[in-house]
């Protein structure tokens, strides 16, 4: 009984993911070539809504980005690019 439900749910989830991936196309850009704004939006939305840059000061963003680097195991390059973007957006 459970197995049937799991299989059906998994198939539905798989279908949604597959169709979304096909619709977007397979992106082959290297992560190191992506801009800070893009990385910021993509990494935040993996778990929660994306906050506007102006809700925290540059120093606070520095702390938050380290928190997120540790928590979400973001790469060093991603973290640095995101911080650079946020600081430029906050000016």
């Amino acid at each position: 009984m459970y197995m049937k439900k799991i299989i059906i749910t998994s198939l539905m989830i798989g279908l949604i993911i597959a169709s979304s991936v096909l619709q977007q196309g397979c992106t082959v850009t290297k992560i190191t070539e992506r801009g800070g704004a893009q990385l910021w939006s993509e990494n935040c939305t993996r778990c929660h809504s994306t906050p506007p840059p102006n809700v925290y000061s540059d120093e606070q963003w520095d702390v938050i980005s380290t928190h997120m680097r540790v928590r979400a195991a973001m790469t060093n390059d991603e973290t640095e690019k995101i911080i650079e973007f946020i600081k430029s957006a906050n000016k």
């Binding site: 992106t27 082959v28 850009t29 290297k30 992560i31 190191t32 680097r69 979400a72 195991a73 973001m74 790469t75 060093n76 390059d77 991603e78």
Partner: peptide
Amino acid sequence: GGIPIGPSKIN
């Protein structure tokens, strides 16, 4: 940690 590998990454 997190490591970029071409278009992918691992953590």
